[in-house]
Design a protein around this nucleic acid. Structure first.
Length: 316
DNA sequence: AATATTTGACCGTA
DNA sequence: TACGGTCAAATATT
């Protein structure tokens, strides 16, 4: 895992190199960081369920989130350099349309969504459409796209041109109550499908936009209390009573605070995915079947569904 | 009844 | 004009 200091060091080291080698260096660095993110994400899906009943669960979640945050920062420092040295950056956001100039209108303020265009075309009915902020995106690939320690609510799904699988759009569950603007997209990759290649699990490309500003994120945890249920995939985390004084306190079981994470897979595929995931991990042989069962709550989302399983997991 | 998800329509950008 | 991100009504779930 590369820290931002090392990435800046790397930047100074390559400053005098040929642009193409700089590009290759940055591209390789981005690939490695991205791989690290993916591995940490997978590790989190393994470790946190094991620690459910452990008081260190919150600490572990925070540390993992910090690691991911470090790599996000490193990537965000490298990406502009890569873009400036070459147009052939493939490991960041794959969609050119996302690398756009931030709209001159106030994209940061969803409460003032009456757009300039609407003012210019006052005859049209107002719809509060805002374009995404593109300056702060991080992509990573993972077989477990739905367990990243945050609560997400799906708000859209689109078929993407030349893609077999639709892209799902998620925003932070606490978008309204805490003005958290973090969003992400999840799309199944087409080239690493273990149906075609037994060595790989289904991989998903996740792209994160914006930073979580909600106090419910794991990084803001003081502690997390989890009630693990052996016979269901639900977990409830109780909020610390002394959390932020300006934020409403979430209560375990309060659905207004604890939204569903919809995990939808075929039942056979989900177990197979977990087995594949475990096979990928060095310490997988130490994991019990209980862990495997818990993992099913965080298994990949198959957007072509035939059954559905809900996991309530609240990070306060 | 409250909340989450689905899905077709709308709209901004390239 | 095509594409993709978002909205919001309809529908599903709890």
């Amino acid at each position: 895992m590369m820290k931002s200091s090392s990435s800046s060091k790397k930047r100074s080291l390559v400053a005098d190199q040929h642009p193409s080698s700089v590009c290759c260096d940055h591209l390789a660095a981005l690939r490695e960081i991205s791989r690290g993110q993916s591995l940490v994400t997978q590790l989190r899906a393994i470790v946190l369920p094991v620690l459910q009943a452990d008081e260190r669960c919150g600490i572990a979640a925070q540390m993992l989130e910090d690691i991911l945050d470090c790599s996000r920062k490193a990537m965000s420092q490298l990406q502009p350099l890569l873009l400036s040295s070459s147009d052939s950056a493939h490991d960041h956001v794959d969609d050119k349309r996302r690398v756009r100039k931030i709209s001159s209108s106030s994209d940061d303020d969803d409460d003032h969504c009456s757009s300039k265009a609407a003012q210019d075309h006052d005859a049209k009915p107002l719809r509060q459409h805002k374009r995404r902020r593109f300056g702060d995106s991080v992509s990573l690939e993972t077989p477990v796209p739905h367990y990243d320690g945050h609560q997400w609510r799906k708000y859209g799904q689109k078929h993407i041109n030349n893609s077999k699988h639709p892209r799902s759009y998620y925003r932070c569950t606490y978008r309204q109550e805490e003005k958290c603007k973090a969003t992400k997209t999840v799309q199944q990759r087409e080239d690493l499908n273990y149906a075609n290649n037994g060595d790989h699990p289904i991989m998903y490309t996740m792209v994160y936009y914006g930073q979580h500003t909600c106090c419910k994120s794991p990084a803001a945890d003081d502690h997390v209390v989890v009630e693990a249920s052996q016979n269901s995939t639900e977990t409830h985390c109780q909020s610390p009573s002394s959390s932020s004084d300006q934020q409403p306190v979430a209560h375990a079981g309060d659905r207004s605070q604890c939204s569903n994470i919809s995990v939808t897979c075929s039942s056979s595929a989900i177990v197979e995915d977990c087995n594949k995931l475990l096979d990928m991990l060095p310490a997988a042989d130490e994991l019990t079947t209980d862990v495997l069962f818990d993992l099913t709550a965080y298994a990949p989302l198959d957007l072509d569904i035939n059954w559905e399983m809900d996991a309530n997991a609240l990070w306060v």
